[in-house]
Nucleic acid binder design. Structure first.
Lengths: 136, 136
DNA sequence: CCGTATCCAAGGTGATACTG
DNA sequence: CAGTATCACCTTGGATACGG
């Protein structure tokens, strides 16, 4: 907690995230980048993986974006990176302790998504249906 | 669980999210839209809020984007919306039961971000520093 | 008050070819 | 193998003015 002490809505004391200038907004945003949760999923439980293993495990990611995401995660201290200068070269990635601490929260979110897909899709159909019948 | 049974990386059995075509990707993405976690934060604990209250509570959000985000959350069944056709009009938002089930996972993520901002920032400085000294 | 309409900037993301 | 370089898209998000 942090920057304000005034309630914004009755009974709501501002989480830092609600504060315009709080850098936690950027951190959260980063943590929820398109491929970050998937990388964390693959590297959970102390697993190491090479670049191509990650690329294969995470369907649809391009090498460019995977590199960018891994770099920024490395920069933030979420993943470690080890280069073995052999031929062919070998690079391994793993979660640091800090990165490992994101596994539980990210897994919870991922599981929520996986478990509620069908309900959400039903809700969408129902909503779109009502909208259509309003128009007709 | 779902679509595949083959391990992608040794010991890694694919979560649905890793599957290219799994709609849970879209759901997760949506759940982590820029303003969704903040809306959920404000509406947690069964609180209701009017449009303008949300807008004030969530610093920096524009009316257009707030509307869009609320609409899509309503479409997915995460928030309820009640219009009171008075003058001036009054519209209330709240979390549905489904929406309320996202509070815990989203709060965990938000708290992670709020609690680790400084560490992440330190890591970034260190990383950028090493990069600079490599160049010089 | 609660939005919508319009226009616009930014950058996240992607496809692909190429290099050490 | 492990990326980088390049180009382009196109969605997300923002500023602002206006309408019911």
């Amino acid at each position: 907690m942090g920057h304000g002490v005034e309630p914004v809505v009755s009974g709501v004391f501002p989480a830092d995230i609600l504060n315009q200038d709080c850098p936690s907004r950027g951190v959260l945003r980063h943590l929820t980048d398109r491929w970050t949760p998937m990388i964390v999923t693959v590297l959970a439980d102390g697993r190491r993986a090479r670049f191509t293993e990650l690329r294969r495990a995470i369907e649809g990611v391009s090498p460019k974006v995977l590199t960018e995401t891994l770099r920024s995660m490395e920069r933030d201290g979420l993943v470690g990176r080890e280069v073995t200068p052999s031929i062919p070269p070998r690079v391994d990635y793993w979660l640091t302790e800090l990165g490992a601490s994101t596994v539980a929260p990210l897994a919870a979110l991922r599981e929520w998504a996986e478990q509620h897909v069908s309900v959400v899709e039903q809700n969408r159909e129902r909503y779109d249906g009502s909208a259509a019948s309003l128009g007709g």
